[in-house]
């Protein structure tokens, strides 16, 4: 709520709100269409849906192919997120300790540049590395590490922003009191950045779980992640099974995030 800004916009306030609400429809409508088509009773994806039935949900949940894709996505995303969180957090901590302007600039650029690299080009490069390296080929190693590279910038940005806002005198104070650097890291920095690290974990996980391009190039033959399964299904036969699976994934994601938000709120202000 921002009364001065509201007053400043004057009679432009109503058009601004109307335009924004129309833009919000760009978010709602496609999602609602996916949800609606998933409860069709018919054989095809049709809008409006024919009747109401949950048969396609039963079909997805009973399908071992979807279940396996979901499990693969879950564990690869979890491992990749863990790597991304360690790398991103260490990088942000290093940034807060660097004094050289150029060094800080280079470090920041290195950590943010993976966002600017197109996933297809990165995936193609990793694919070439993958086919050339005998022990790694046929495993998920490069896939998971590549996903970690794509997730790390988000952790880095969140943690680095938090560290920017911390009191710079804490470090000298702790050092004067005789704390060694691992002690300072453990007792001063980590408690300060922990909420940002958790948020970064969540964000990186969502980004990685959603990422399809590296799956296309790097998942070993026979393996399938959920996005890959969805992409394949959309190109072969666009069936209500796909929209039912999409709805399920979205509902799980939103529920998990709502729980996370609730937990964060409860921790912040205990009743």
């Amino acid at each position: 709520m921002n009364p001065p800004l509201r007053r400043a916009l004057g009679h432009w306030r109503a058009p601004v709100c109307v335009l924004a609400a129309a833009a919000a429809l760009l978010f709602y409508v496609p999602f609602l269409v996916v949800v609606a088509t998933s409860w069709t009773g018919g054989e095809f994806v049709l809008f409006p849906p024919q009747g109401f039935s949950l048969r396609w949900y039963a079909s997805v949940l009973g399908d071992p192919e979807w279940a396996q894709a979901f499990r693969t996505s879950l564990w690869t995303s979890a491992v990749a997120t863990a790597v991304a969180v360690v790398i991103g957090t260490l990088g942000a901590l290093a940034l807060s300790r660097l004094r050289s302007r150029t060094g800080r600039r280079l470090l920041r650029t290195l950590f943010i540049v993976p966002i600017a690299i197109p996933p297809v080009a990165y995936g193609a490069g990793l694919y070439l590395v993958n086919i050339g390296s005998e022990p790694l080929y046929g495993t998920f190693v490069l896939f998971v590490l590549g996903e970690a590279v794509l997730g790390a910038p988000y952790v880095f940005v969140l943690v680095a922003n938090r560290l920017e806002q911390t009191d710079p005198t804490l470090h000298p104070a702790a050092a004067t009191l005789g704390a060694s650097w691992p002690m300072i890291l453990w007792r001063v920095d980590l408690p300060l950045v922990l909420p940002s690290v958790l948020r970064g974990t969540l964000f990186a996980f969502v980004v990685i779980f959603d990422e399809v391009v590296l799956s296309v190039f790097l998942v070993p033959v026979g393996g399938r992640t959920l996005p890959l399964q969805m992409l394949g299904a959309s190109q072969e036969a666009f069936s209500p099974q796909l929209t039912a699976a999409s709805t399920l994934v979205s509902v799980v994601a939103v529920a998990a995030l709502a729980l996370f938000g609730l937990a964060a709120r409860i921790r912040k202000d205990p009743p």
Partner: peptide, 24 residues
């Protein structure tokens, strides 16, 4: 309405949203 729309869009997969546009 606006904040919820933002959240829906952020937390649903890009692919799911693209499917929505296909269906549209």
């Amino acid at each position: 309405f606006l904040v919820a729309g933002l959240l829906v869009s952020l937390w649903t997969s890009v692919m799911v949203r693209t499917f929505g546009w296909m269906l549209l």
